[in-house]
Nucleic acid binder design. Structure first.
Lengths: 253, 253
DNA sequence: TCTTGACCTTGACGTTACGTCATTTGTTAT
DNA sequence: ATAACAAATGACGTAACGTCAAGGTCAAGA
């Protein structure tokens, strides 16, 4: 019962090219060649091949496998031991690489959060921290909420940020338009816009009646926010905040 | 301050060939080429190179590095994440490989111990077990000592075994010679040989006066041992055992 | 000015373990 | 006989450089 290349390839799971290559480098010679130069393998070669594949899966280079299969059991054990220690140092190596990757990811994320924190409202990270401090000190939000908020956005992807910024931009434009049209802050249309504002803020945290009013107060108190909203219209902050107060009284608790 | 290839190579720790290669594949072009075709790099390229090397150490292929360095931080994080998961599956893979190696080592060791157990005294493993049983039953050694003995030899390397066998062979020949010369078992020369026998047995376990005598008794009782020593001389067993008894009485306790 | 030695250049082949053609010859089935 | 299939050889491609080889360039001393 002799196997031809493709038959042996199929039953052993390697390619015919591989068998030809092993023949070429002298790792596994066929049992004999036919008059047609065809390679014919037998059981013995099949067993040999299985040994080869075993060591190959362990990651031994073919040259080592050659020498290992020609050596006795003592030397096999030695080879296995040294190979094992190589694998073990690979393990450690890979573990530190993974740690490095983790550190790099959080580093980049830190940069990104800073950058985006600046981008979405036009304030630089230091000012952002001031605002946080203000909100903490004035009891608008708790430290826990600050942390939750950062955790929330740190998982955001690019599209999230873009959508978030677009929503904010659109909202402010719509508010400006409503104000210019002379709509009262308590008007239904404006309140619908404030509903959108509330939902928008929910991207970070969920204000209560009290803290939503506090947020409005911060808009008024802080020159950074004033100048931000002044880009749309000088009266926009007051308009927005009074509408927010009405919304808070009517809808929040 | 422009660096030439070798200078940049030295300060960055890569080879000049590597820099030329990176230029070739467009990964890191020099700041400019001189009229002499020399490559000149500047700080910017040094920083770039350090980025490249960072990702290279993480195991990224150069083609990926190209694309990563051209992408923004979001995509970098994504690349790092996917690379991390690749590394993690490598970890698992390697761990199972190590386990496989361990299993293979102990498998081969098992075979070896069997084979060597046969080789060193010419008995096959089953008979060896009989002898162990005999020695256990007759109180020559304890189960603990049997285990210790196997543990001892299972760490042996090829040279150990060869030396051990050579020592035994030499000792038996010397004993035969002494016997043929008409030396009495209690003669000093013969007792020195027995001293060697005692030391030889110590390769496995440390007999007491009583157990050393028991071992001699086994040599006499067991046909396997008789036929083993008969290869040297039909009277060798009796000669050896009586010398062992004298040694035990005089030297052991 | 000439030479020397250090430094630079561009090839081009070698490495690992095959994959993937292209081309040709051999076998088998209809 | 002819088509379809199987096997052969040969050669190039892969990744990331290492390692020559052969030849230009630069700074410095004689």
């Amino acid at each position: 019962m002799s196997y031809t290349v493709n038959k042996l390839a199929r039953i052993s799971g390697v390619s015919a090219r591989t068998l030809r290559f092993y023949d070429e480098i002298g790792l596994l010679k066929p049992a004999f060649y036919g008059d047609n130069q065809y390679r014919y393998y037998e059981e013995e070669q099949l067993l040999m091949l299985q040994q080869i594949l075993f060591f190959r899966e362990l990651g031994f280079p073919l040259s080592d496998i050659q020498q290992i299969l020609g050596s006795d059991d003592f030397d096999k054990i030695e080879s296995l031991k040294t190979h094992k220690s190589i694998l073990q140092s690979n393990l450690e190596q890979t573990e530190t690489l993974i740690k490095t990757i983790d550190k790099t990811i959080s580093h980049i994320r830190g940069k990104l959060i800073m950058r985006d924190a600046e981008m979405y409202d036009g304030f630089d990270p230091k000012k952002q921290q001031e605002h946080e401090k203000y909100m903490l000190d004035s009891g608008i939000i708790s430290q826990q909420q600050v942390d939750d908020s950062w955790n929330k956005v740190s998982h955001w992807k690019k599209p999230n940020w873009e959508q978030f910024q677009n929503e904010g931009e659109q909202l402010n434009q719509d508010l400006t338009k409503a104000m210019k049209q002379g709509l009262k802050p308590e008007s239904e249309d404006t309140q619908i816009l404030i509903q959108r504002h509330y939902a928008w803020v929910n991207n970070f945290w969920t204000p209560t009646k009290e803290t939503y009013i506090g947020l409005g107060k911060m808009y008024l108190d802080h020159p950074d926010y004033r100048s931000f909203y002044n880009k749309y219209h000088p009266d926009l902050v007051e308009y927005l905040v009074s509408a927010m107060n009405i919304f808070a009284e009517r809808e929040l608790s």
